[in-house]
Design a protein around this nucleic acid. Structure first.
Lengths: 211, 211
DNA sequence: CCTGAGTTTGAATCACCAGTCAACTCCGAC
DNA sequence: GTCGGAGTTGACTGGTGATTCAAACTCAGG
């Protein structure tokens, strides 16, 4: 296999990114050492720098790589549902940290906060983060548009605006859930988001998908 | 002055906290070195450790100290206004990063993100953060209650719940404004928050204080 | 078998920084 | 005046961790 080599190289690349993302969620961006990443790959520290030109670049790549992975998983999950209403409800459930244990949402949110901090001082990461963030709000807006096209939802406020509002609400609440705020449990967050979503699309609340 | 000494000591303490908060907003928590703080105070590095038992404790104290300072300034500002409606509107304006240049909201928000990251792995800071956060949401709820008492606002959803919702929305939007997201300008954020606030308290939107 | 490019290792280097400490300066008390 | 202690300095120590590098290893192709 002439490919085996190159393919192996590709795998290593990804393997390292994945390990890095793991370590970051475990120990936090600031406490992540190359050694940790190397250990997680069962590889020597030197190899990490053989594949990435510096620790900094690796970390930034790992952050966006992981976020991308989570986003794609979410998109795949939502595509299985037909009705816009179910999709919106599911999107909210997926966004609540720790609500659905199978989806590593806790990890994802922790990574987001790390991205925000770093983006504060790294304009190029800020740009990437904006793209990722926009894509995610876009997916809310798309669901709204879809629901209106099929007649499931009434017309109303601009779909993009709804995406921004609901997105911001989810961000804000997710932070508090993540902080273990006693006044904002995952269930509470879910209910609030579902409620607001319903009112934003002019929907009669109620049996919104419960599991 | 037998006091001069002690007073001087007190000032130093505060002076260092203030300098630390400054450095943190400038360089980020992770990049803050004792040396930087010492320089900002025009003092030798050793002195910093003379007043604080470790860099870590100093940083955590600085974070909550600065947040407290900002909160008190906001409370003072709001107290000048009589009508609940003006207070709510002003609170929103004060919360938009960079909208009112005199209020160092940009700094405050940057510090919040640092707090969140650190709280993720420091339960004791998480507890302090929860208190600070709750106090701020509480101030929204109090305004709502006040407005209802005076008859300015209609009754409706639980005031605390409104505090949580509006608070979360503000948090979420502030992050995007802070990231310089082209789709969420300070003005845009202001408008959205005012709008949502109005609808949450069942208020006819419109001439909501504009400056 | 060789060979050589691509991989991998781990020891060595290098810079940096938190925290320590012995010495010095002030100033008020006696 | 001088004593003593709080306040202050800045050089020093120790540990840590990113990055470099020369050597070793692997394996596909000849």
């Amino acid at each position: 296999m002439a490919r085996a080599r190159q393919k192996n190289g590709k795998d290593r690349h990804q393997e390292i990114l994945e390990a890095a993302a793991r370590v970051i969620t475990d120990r936090g961006l600031a406490e992540t050492r190359i050694q940790d990443i190397a250990e997680r790959c069962r590889v020597s520290p030197g190899l990490i720098l053989y594949y990435f030109e510096s620790k900094d670049r690796l970390l930034v790549e790992a952050l966006t790589y992981a976020n991308d992975k989570y986003y794609l998983a979410q998109a795949r999950d939502l595509r299985r549902l037909d009705s816009a209403r179910e999709q919106l409800s599911r999107l909210i459930d997926l966004s609540v940290p720790g609500l659905l244990p199978d989806f590593e949402r806790l990890e994802e949110w922790a990574l987001w906060i790390e991205i925000w901090v770093r983006a504060l001082r790294d304009p190029s990461l800020a740009k990437e983060a904006e793209v990722l963030d926009r894509r995610w709000r876009q997916s809310i807006a798309d669901i709204v548009r879809h629901g209106r096209q099929t007649g499931e939802f009434d017309d109303g406020e601009d779909a993009d605006e709804i995406g921004r509002k609901l997105g911001a609400l989810i961000d804000g609440l997710a932070i508090q859930v993540l902080m273990n705020d006693a006044h904002v449990s995952p269930d509470h967050m879910r209910r609030m988001c579902q409620e607001v979503a319903a009112s934003l699309i002019g929907f009669e609340l109620e049996p919104v998908a419960h599991a």
